[in-house]
Design a protein around this nucleic acid. Structure first.
Lengths: 217, 217, 217, 217
DNA sequence: CATGAATGAGTATTCATTCAT
DNA sequence: CATGAATGAATACTCATTCAT
């Protein structure tokens, strides 16, 4: 946690520091990110930095939290309507919201993404702590609810499928970014919707051809 | 390519060096991996290292090749039988072989994994060259063949699904490792098989409940 | 250019660093000069050095400038009186001033000398930039002026003679140092003056015996 | 001195080694020259090198001697005719021969040149030993003889002028190379002769305008 | 609360020389 | 006489963190 000194700072300065840090951590991995570069960009003294934050990790944790909070804002509407909508609608909305978050907060999204992919297990444990498991847990609850409602095949392995769905969320986001690499934020969401639709369809129905005579296993 | 001096070394010493390097690159990213640590572990002189290898990259490339070669040994049988087996059998075998490789060569697998996730694009291009794109391409070909044979639903987005299947391969491997974290290599493959079975089932059939009255979209 | 941190240093420390660097660069070529030796002599931390200077070249450039500035101080009076004095007086004064500079700033003079003789063309271009060509050009202008005034034989090859005069400047300096090798700075300039006088005389009149019957070419 | 093992080598191999060394020392200063590069170029084992030569210095000394011997071959005819020709003819021929040596043995000449310019005084003393002073001594003898014969102004400082003449030899060689930088060896020596002529003329007559009313000093 | 100098262990790479076979 | 592996000190440069003012 940043020290009190940081929160006592005039907002302008605080923002300058945060932006510098977001910039740095979105460009470089935790290890490669440089405090020196951050203080230069933010135009503060080296010493000041260590009066605001315990150390590099302290700053990173804070930045990561900001990213998580921002993402939650995108997911919130979907989560709120969760009870009144069927599983696949919720899943579809979550995927769309996830992509929208990345589209509109590219740098912030990169930070979490980079950490997800990192092999620095110590760091991941340090940062995620409780967060990660919960993300899975939430999908498990959603799946169980879907089964109860008769929307989901009850024979699936809930644990495994929840992990699959989580990772497929990353997959579709990456895929979307790669196919729309220009990085231009358009208001035309038709292709985004179509892509999500296709993925959800696959998750719903699988990829095996359906026919009355196709009974295997 | 390592210099001749390296291949002329007594096998014991060569192995000591390779193990030290594999250890290092499985623990640290390319950038963070330390030649000093490697030569200390391998108990050779700093100067000797540079008699064996051009530089750090030369060593890494060599280690990566070893990893790739080793993995291929696991996939080979499946690839050879590809023509005579249906899509899902091939996919199942590929997933199983992938997990087995990781189980039995954890450190080696970590090296490739780490590189895959790395954001050092220069390094990735240096190492992969042609390899990377082909991996996706291979699954696309497999899918198209499955469609032709009437095994796969022809309405799927082949591009998207191939990406999904690739990433699900990583997902299941990670998942397996996490649920069997003790790292003990057992000869009992029943749980592994079961897990793969479940994932393949989900991919085949989707997770939506099947009933004659289930009209969607 | 050294960083601000360097100029903000207490003068004593700054001088200590400069002296250490001057010592090093007067003893060793740019390539062989060692930052480690410099920081040890100056008694500062390795890291501190890089807070003061961008890199080795940055330091060298600074040291070289100091040397050039110092030399200019010696030449200035002569250059200022150039218009009102005849060619040979100016030349004589330039040679004398050159020797005096070397006598009283041996180490500094060595640094420029060493660079002049260096075969590291990249470095020379980096450092000299515009300076070098001008040195020759200046003597050419001086010669042409001398010809116009009727002081210099108009049949000479101005280009060639200017190169000769430049190199003879180095020659006499070296010669003076070698004949007074004890390195003792005396206030008795009589021998210095005499030596310069002799050289100028030779340049003026040549070494052929003068007689009405000695017409060749 | 190279060890006997070196002189016992088959000529072909010995030449290969010498050429590799000449190449290296003509491209790099003594310090920067690399034994590793030499043995690679010569295609011999690292260890073999140290069976032929004591160390780097031993090799350099040998190469330097070869260069000196080769140069002497060019000067020999002039030296032989010394007695029967007047001072300026001898000087002219020496200068011309010096340039010709450089033109036709560029690499060898570079080696001596590089050493001359070097500030590594230890090395210079090591190598020159007796050689250097003699070169000056020879010119002094020549000058004295010229004075006796009535060719040279007896009022000159013989010591100083001999140093001047030595250095002017380097000056004109450099100047010639710079104005004919293409490095193409032509058989047309007219420009070379003209340049030497001009310099000798300057040395003979000086650069002061000659007139009956020009009384100085 | 601001400042910025000080620190020193860390990085990859080079090189002449030695030595055992 | 040939070989080539072994050596280790040396190089310039980086970086997170501390500390005194």
């Amino acid at each position: 946690m940043p020290k009190n000194t940081f929160f006592n700072l005039p907002e302008k300065k605080r923002t300058r520091i945060l932006n510098a840090a977001i910039d740095e951590f979105s460009k470089y991995s935790y290890e490669k990110a440089s405090i020196t570069r951050i203080v230069n960009t933010a135009n503060i003294a080296k010493g000041s930095f260590y009066q605001y934050f315990e150390n590099k990790l302290d700053l990173f944790r804070h930045i990561f939290m900001i990213s998580a909070d921002e993402k939650l804002k995108y997911l919130k509407p979907t989560l709120d309507k969760m009870e009144s909508e069927d599983f696949f609608t919720t899943l579809r909305n979550l995927y769309v919201a996830g992509i929208e978050f990345v589209k509109e907060n590219y740098k912030l999204s990169q930070i979490a993404d980079r950490l997800m992919k990192s092999n620095n297990e110590n760091l991941k444990n340090e940062i995620f702590g409780e967060t990660k498991p919960k993300s899975n847990h939430f999908l498990k609850v959603l799946l169980l609810k879907g089964i109860k409602r008769g929307e989901i095949d009850s024979s699936i392995d809930v644990e495994l499928v929840s992990v699959m769905l989580t990772n497929l969320s990353f997959t579709i986001t990456e895929y979307y970014l790669k196919t729309n690499e220009k990085g231009i934020v358009t208001d035309d969401y038709s292709d985004l919707m179509e892509m999500v639709e296709k993925m959800i369809y696959t998750i719903e129905n699988g990829i095996k051809i359906k026919g009355e005579d196709n009974n295997d296993y």
